[in-house]
Design a protein around this nucleic acid. Structure first.
Lengths: 211, 211
DNA sequence: CGTATTCAATACAGCAACGTATCTAACGCC
DNA sequence: GGCGTTAGATACGTTGCTGTATTGAATACG
């Protein structure tokens, strides 16, 4: 599936590969339990290693967090770049924006836990603020063309800054996911809050093109 | 200031009073550090007690959390009830809604850390889901008249459900506070995201009354 | 084919925080 | 004003997790 392949079920021993697996596990565990409650033991278990492997690759749990943030940003931008060409135009404005945001969601698709965790960590931990803001800004900057093209092809134009628009749309999707998760519902359900409110939100921040 | 007064700097010994002070401290510490990273030691220090006092009032840290959630809900509803009559009508729709939400914000005014923490705990901890949802629903149910009266007096009517509207507005205020905090700015600044976007948001989900 | 090096496992020491059990002092009551 | 009760402080045991130091295996290289 990926470059660092397994050979017969046992991953070939390679530093980058174990780092990746540890980071994968960390993104899961941090999302599920939160950074503070997460133990490096659990991260290692989930990755199929012992703590020895971990401390051979990372100095502390904090360092793992930093590395995770870096990688998440890289992954998101990568995913966005790869998706630029797939310009669907057969569907409605709302479903285009919705689909794009769900697919390309920063910090992993549908992974609300990790997203929320990272944002709270950024609020509480000043040293995370800069990388966090940079990552999110980069995402919005790259997503912006999507939104504007989708709007343009519907004959609409933003009446607020594109950045404000994107932040607000993201917030809507986040709260939609959050409330669904808390209520035990499917965050991607067709009748979720995001889908109900997005038309109104888009309507409020756009006008017809010749205005 | 309050009923359980100090007598010359030393609080009179009373179980309810210490509970209150512990809960106050907990709301601070949980908001600042997060529930998992918070130690009961720090909560007690902040409240001016030792852990002995704590374990005399609460069995575990989790129980403290439950009690906190209960109290926050009660406080919010109380604050809402007390504010029902102060119906300002000299200011714009936006500033009315804005002011009300800032003043009556559930879970303490401006205390983003605690609000976010509690929501994440509710996502991760199924046993918190029900009380959390109940508290939020109660808040929205009581806040709804505010919004609808404010809109009505501006000649507007919602085109989406009042609940959806309130959830979305709250989400906007939350993300506004969050981003300000991360950026090291004042969440209540006059040019924050919430104030910039609220007009568009309200416009998108209302129509003039005779429509 | 053997040696050196790298990576991960194991074993260990130390700490921090929880929760308990005991003690002391204040308040209520008669 | 002594006596019982209640609230909070002190002291302690226990656990779980972190981070380090050491050992063992696998790979690369000569």
């Amino acid at each position: 599936m990926d470059g660092t392949a397994r050979d017969g079920g046992r991953m070939k021993r390679s530093r980058p590969a174990t780092r990746e697996r540890l980071l994968d596990a960390a993104s899961e565990v941090f999302g599920e339990r939160g950074f503070a409650a997460a133990t490096v033991e659990e991260v290692c278990e989930r990755a199929g290693f012992t703590r020895g492997a971990f401390y051979s690759n990372f100095a502390t749990k904090e360092e793992l967090l930093l590395a995770l943030l870096d990688r998440e940003e890289a992954q998101v931008l990568e995913r966005l770049s790869a998706a630029v060409d797939t310009a669907t135009r057969d569907s409605s404005l709302v479903s285009v924006v919705t689909g794009r945001l769900f697919d390309l969601q920063p910090f992993g698709s549908g992974n609300y836990g990790l997203r929320a965790e990272l944002s709270l960590l950024a609020v509480r931990n000043p040293e995370l603020a800069a990388p966090y803001l940079a990552a999110r800004r980069a995402f919005r900057a790259r997503f912006q063309p999507f939104l504007e093209r989708a709007l343009a092809s519907a004959g609409l134009r933003l009446t607020v800054s594109a950045d404000d628009a994107l932040v607000t749309i993201e917030a809507l999707f986040d709260v939609s996911a959050r409330d669904a998760l808390i209520a035990g519902a499917d965050p991607n359900a067709g009748d979720n809050l995001a889908r109900r409110m997005l038309p109104a939100l888009l309507a409020g921040m756009t006008t017809r093109h010749g205005d």
